[in-house]
């Protein structure tokens, strides 16, 4: 069964239709890359999945549970949206680390707050009834995640002391801290110097090997071909073409996909 099912997502900003009915599904452990030119709606789609934008139409289902249904106002309340967000992680183009906290605290902050709240309201969090014990476990997890992205030695540094590539790896660890079902990347290497993209892409490859379900909006066509199970080409707010990387990138059927890739290869 699909982890994520997206049906008929439509989003307009005023009169501008940015998404005109998007449908797709992602299986557990699958990596979906979304490519397309600027303005095609890729980022807006990702923002809708993370409930930073509210679509006018459509439905989002995760593990069989309908998280969002434009026709059902219960799924639109602040509290519901907040819980829904925990199913998704988002890594931003601009990292958006919290500058005033150390690397480790960036990773533990959100879960620590959640644990505190749950213990107060429901008596326990992840089996812990004592906040300090819960926090110790969260701390350990952060150290594990930092090891995964290769930054164990940076846990007490502040974001401004790190390179862009290191900051983005911390941002990935932070997104993983909430154990999302689907991890989304919004052009994770676009703000990086070319020599720093490699370390971030390497981490994403390792996450794929570890079986994470991921959606990656990217301009790195070669990377998309290499890491993805499925590639989706968006154009003008619709899915123009979707399929295996061999098919969409290697042998595109849609004329717009061909044009886009041809422009890309010229560079």
């Amino acid at each position: 069964m699909a982890v994520l099912q997206v049906e008929n997502i439509q989003k307009n900003f005023g009169k501008v239709e940015v998404l005109k009915g998007i449908d797709f599904a992602v299986e557990k452990g699958e990596v979906l890359s979304i490519i397309g030119s600027s303005g095609s709606g890729k980022t807006t789609l990702l923002r809708c999945l993370n409930f930073l934008e509210t679509p006018q139409e459509g439905r989002i289902t995760v593990n069989g549970e309908t998280l969002f249904d434009a026709a059902d106002s219960h799924t639109l309340s602040d509290a519901a949206i907040r819980l829904n967000r925990l199913h998704f992680g988002l890594v931003f183009q601009q990292f958006n680390l919290f500058p005033q906290y150390t690397v480790k605290r960036n990773i533990t902050l959100a879960e620590g707050l959640l644990a505190k709240e749950r213990i107060k309201k429901e008596g326990s969090y992840n089996g812990y009834t004592d906040y300090r014990e819960a926090l110790a476990a969260i701390d350990q997890k952060a150290e594990r995640l930092l090891a995964e992205v290769g930054l164990s030695d940076k846990q007490d540094s502040f974001p401004c002391q790190l390179s862009g590539g290191q900051q983005q790896r911390v941002a990935i660890a932070r997104a993983l801290s909430m154990e999302p079902d689907v991890l989304c990347f919004d052009e994770p290497t676009s703000a990086l110097d070319p020599e720093l993209t490699g370390e971030v892409l390497r981490v994403i490859r390792e996450l794929k090997a570890a079986g994470r379900t991921m959606i990656i909006v990217t301009h790195e066509i070669e990377f998309a071909r290499d890491v993805s199970d499925t590639v989706m080409f968006m154009d003008g707010g619709v899915v123009a073409e979707i399929g295996s990387p061999e098919q969409v990138i290697g042998n595109p059927q849609n004329s717009r996909t061909r044009e886009f890739l041809a422009r890309f290869n010229e560079r």
């Binding site: 993370n50 930073l52 931003f92 959100a110 801290s177 909430m178």
Partner: peptide, 8 residues
């Protein structure tokens, strides 16, 4: 937004 997507 970073806080929001982390469920804060």
């Amino acid at each position: 937004e970073a806080g929001q997507v982390l469920g804060m």
